[in-house]
Write a protein that binds this DNA or RNA. Sequence first.
RNA 1: GGCCCCAUCGUCUAGAGGCCUAGGACAUCAGAUUCUCAAUCUGGGUACACGGGUUCGAAUCCCGUUGGGGCCGCCA
Length: 439
Amino acid sequence: MDVRVRFAPSPTGFLHIGSVRTALFNWLYARHTGGTFVLRIEDTDIARNTEQSLNTILDGLKWLGLHHDEGPYFQSQRAKIYRQRTRQLLDAGMAYERDGAIRFKMPREPITVPDLIAGNVTRELADRELQDPDFVIVRSDGNPVFHLVNVVDDLEMKITHVIRGEDHLSNTPKHIALFRAFGVEPPQYAHIPMILNPDGTKMSKSDPDPGKARLASLSTYIEDGYVPEAVRNYLCLLGWSPKDNREKMDIEEIKRIFDLPQVLRTNARFDVAKLKWMSGEYIHELSMEEFVKRAQPFLRIPGPPPDRTYLHALLRYYQLKIQTFKELLDQRIDYWFIEEYPFDPEAVKKSCSAPQTGERLLKLADAFAAVRHWDLPSLETALKSLATELGIKNADLIHPCRVAVSGQSVGMSLYHMLEVLGRDRVLARLRRAAEKFRP
RNA sequence: GGCCCCAUCGUCUAGAGGCCUAGGACAUCAGAUUCUCAAUCUGGGUACACGGGUUCGAAUCCCGUUGGGGCCGCCA
């Protein structure tokens, strides 16, 4: 049997992280079985159907690398089919009209859902449903209701496996009843557990807490510069695991071993810290070419375009330091590119307040000027011999030197920094700073 | 209110009756290292929700309790 699965988001203008995971599991299952991944847009509510919100979905899937094989199909363009199917039920006496709406005659006996993940689930009717088990399939304004269009679409598109959030488990009996009413065997169902906020509450875009609302949207992770492969990898691990302690995994490998029965039945909480860690893992292993390419939107380089070799040399440090590309914006990198870099007052106060600072920096500049090869070991030797000569600790030269050439007290190891900056910049900066810090 | 699902460290999870005095990862703490932040290395603490069964033996099976989530719409 050819597997056909679908992702059916409603175009509400953003992608919920839970939806993304559902899309991912559908995609994984399709790839695992060599089946077809269909994209269907649930846009029967015309008010939500805007081009921009559709693009949000398309862009999100593309960002994650979840390519669909068919679609997107739009429910809004399928009104005729829903009407025909409604007619069919009406004619067969399995639906009737009341108060202008069309209702489906729900079977009175409980229906068992054979679920690939949850097992056999038999749902008794709730007390309210006991009063009136039938449900509306076409509104009085003539628009079909979710349950109807969902089933009709799955039927028409020959969907074989419906992989969706557990929030749909309770109304799956309705869907099964509808399939049977059409004289068709329902597809296989697989309900995956939900993704919750860190505090265990439901993830929602409309959460009054803006922080939590932000967590729920995929666009947050795109904007914050997370690596898409990491987001995808992390989401795979929410409700599924390879059982052998592996976590950072190649997507090809996941496609190979992913299967529905191993999906967990427990809800998972979203842990941004772990996602961040994983994003970092992916960033660190990027080639410099790829890193620069992806970092582009988050790089603010002042001054004229830098030399490529120089840029790569200095960026290596930041690549290993950050976990999301947006963190690049927090790094003070101006000193690599322009001479008017700012001096951090704290750093100056801490490292350059000694009265001999100016004099020492001048001597250091002279020592550096004398090195034959501008490389790490020579610079280290030069600095250390000067310290010995002056009878001071290495650190008494290292810290002022760092502040002099970078304006700050943090950064890569000093000798490495000097090596990358180059002789001309370093000597000029040391001499200028010597003036600046003269008592 | 009714119905459904679930329950292992703070979090994600491994665990399908003896390999479990419960393993891994993230987070956290301590130490090491260093010119700073970071990284790295080493080490530590922290979990089978509770109560009953079944069994020679239970994190693993059954029942109940509690807790969490979901659904019961002319929303999707």
